[in-house]
């Protein structure tokens, strides 16, 4: 019984804080509203018995939201929301589309005869996940690894305006890179 109560709280909390993300003025509060929504989602996943993935969602999302807060404050015109100005275009159109999508999905959820679960969940789902990722789903593991590596390289290339020629000179033979602020090991 307590499980359904906790689920109800998480559901309402997740959707409410999700909506708050776009309702609140201050960008910092929008970021933490999104973080709250993720924390509720993480709890919901914990409720479903996936303890490892639930805690992983919480861990990953806290770090991601902190990085998002940095960019949020950097790029938004008035990050603290002290001078409220709305940066929205065709609000009603968006509202109509998303309401329509919700009704469509809800109808699907209610009408589709979902199959019954075959057996009971394994004792330790995380162990099953580990086995799968190292066994049958090895391709997923390799793909995720490559995608993350490609993302790191691409994001760095896109974000920085200085290349290695600016740092190490045209013949790339400068002994110490000339960065505005040197790193700890002089590299």
């Amino acid at each position: 019984m307590t499980e359904t109560v906790v689920f109800a709280v998480c559901a309402v909390g997740a959707v409410a804080s999700g909506a708050a993300v776009f309702a609140v003025d201050s960008m910092a509060r929008a970021t933490f509203a999104l973080l709250a929504s993720f924390l509720f989602t993480g709890t919901a996943v914990l409720l479903l018995g996936l303890s490892y993935l639930g805690v992983l969602v919480v861990l990953m999302m806290v770090m991601e939201m902190m990085v998002m807060a940095v960019f949020m404050v950097m790029y938004m015109m008035n990050p603290a929301g002290l001078m409220p100005m709305s940066m929205v275009h065709n609000r009603n159109g968006a509202l109509a589309v998303s309401a329509g999508v919700f009704l469509l999905l809800a109808a699907g959820v209610v009408l589709v005869p979902w199959p019954e679960a075959g057996g009971a969940p394994p004792a330790d789902p995380a162990f099953a996940l580990g086995e799968a990722v190292m066994g049958r789903h090895m391709l997923v593991m390799m793909l995720v690894g490559m995608v993350l590596f490609a993302t790191m390289v691409a994001a760095t290339v896109l974000a920085t305006s200085r290349g290695r020629y600016d740092r190490y000179g045209d013949d790339l033979r400068r002994e110490h890179p000339d960065d505005p602020i040197g790193g700890g090991l002089g590299r």
Partner: peptide, 21 residues
């Protein structure tokens, strides 16, 4: 008054990475 506590908003300027922050 419009500005809370009378604090003006920060102005923006060129930074060392080519962004205007």
């Amino acid at each position: 008054e419009d500005m809370p506590g009378g604090l003006p908003m920060a102005d923006r300027g060129e930074d060392r990475d080519g962004l205007t922050l």
